[in-house]
Design a protein around this nucleic acid. Structure first.
Lengths: 132, 132
DNA sequence: TATGTATCCTGTAGTGACTACAGGAACAAG
DNA sequence: CTTGTTCCTGTAGTCACTACAGGATACATA
C-alpha cells in the first residue's frame, strides 16, 4: 500500500489541495491518519473515495447528494435500482438545465440578430432589455 | 408618475425584496429616494433599471457584466456594434455551458443504461464512479 | 550541523449571487 | 390606542470552493 501526502493525493486525483481540506472539514471525506509531525497520510481507500467524489462533482451531483450516495455504498444497504433511480432523477435535472440554457441562448441569438441588422443609433438589444 | 415601495417594486418586477436591497448595497442599482420615515420610494426609472438587471440576470449575464453594460447605456457612449459583440461573446459562453451539460448528460445516460440491465448485486454506476 | 526550500498545518476570510433572520421602526386600519 | 403588516439595518448563512497569513515540518544540500 502506497501512502500519499495531501499534495500527492491532489496530483493523483486532480483535486485541489484546498478543496481536499475543505471536503474533510465538511465531512465529505473521512479524516485521514496523520504522521508524527501532524501531516495527513492518505491510503488507497482515500484515493478511491476522492475519485468517487470528484467524479460525482463532475457529473453535477451536489455534495449533499454525494454524501447520501456514499453513505448508501458504505452501509452496503442499497440496490442497483435505487442508484439507477437517483441517476435518472439527476439526468432529468441536468436536462432541464440544458433546456434553460438553450432558451437563454435562443433569446440571445435573436437579440444579436436584430442588432446585426445595423440599426443605429438605437440599440434593439438594450431596448429589449429595458422591457418588462 | 407612480411611486412604489420596495414591496411594490418587488411585485411589479418579480425580483425578491432582499435581492433588491442586495443590488442597492452592491451598487448594481442606485440608491432610491426615501420617505420622511426612511422608506424607499421607487419611480419609473427605478422600475426600468431593475427590469434591465433582471432580464440580464435571466440571460446569464453576471452582475459585473450588467454593471458594465448599464454604465455604457448611462453614458450613452456605446455603439450597437459593441453591444452586439458583448452579446455574441456571451452567447458563446452559454453555448459552452450547454455542451458541458450535454456531456454530463451523456455520461449519466450511459451509466443509467448499464444499470438498467439489471445487474445485481454489483452496481455498474457505483463501480464506475470509483474509477480514476 | 546549518541553511534553504518546499510542503504542510490551522484558522480565517473572501468569491458570487443570493437568502434569511433578529430586533426595532413606520404605516395603515379598526 | 391597539393590532397587524410592511419596512429598516445589520449580520450571517447557503453552496462550493479559493486564497491567504503565520507558523511548523520535512527534505535536500553544503
Amino acid at each position: 500500500m502506497k501512502s500519499l501526502s495531501i499534495g500527492g493525493l491532489s496530483e493523483k486525483t486532480g483535486v485541489n489541495i484546498e478543496t481536499i481540506r475543505y471536503y474533510e472539514r465538511e465531512n465529505i471525506l473521512p479524516k485521514p491518519s496523520r504522521s508524527d509531525g501532524g501531516r495527513r497520510i492518505y491510503n488507497n481507500e482515500d484515493v478511491r473515495r476522492l475519485n468517487f467524489v470528484h467524479k460525482c462533482r463532475n457529473l453535477g451531483f451536489s455534495l449533499r447528494e454525494i454524501v447520501s450516495l456514499m453513505s448508501l455504498v458504505d452501509t452496503g444497504n442499497f440496490t442497483c435500482k435505487q442508484v439507477h433511480e437517483l441517476t435518472v432523477v439527476h439526468v432529468k435535472e441536468v436536462s432541464e438545465k440544458i433546456e434553460n440554457l438553450k432558451r437563454m441562448e435562443r433569446v440571445l441569438l435573436e437579440m444579436a440578430d436584430r442588432c446585426g441588422k445595423g440599426s443605429i443609433p438605437d440599440c434593439p438589444i438594450i431596448d429589449s432589455l429595458f422591457l418588462e
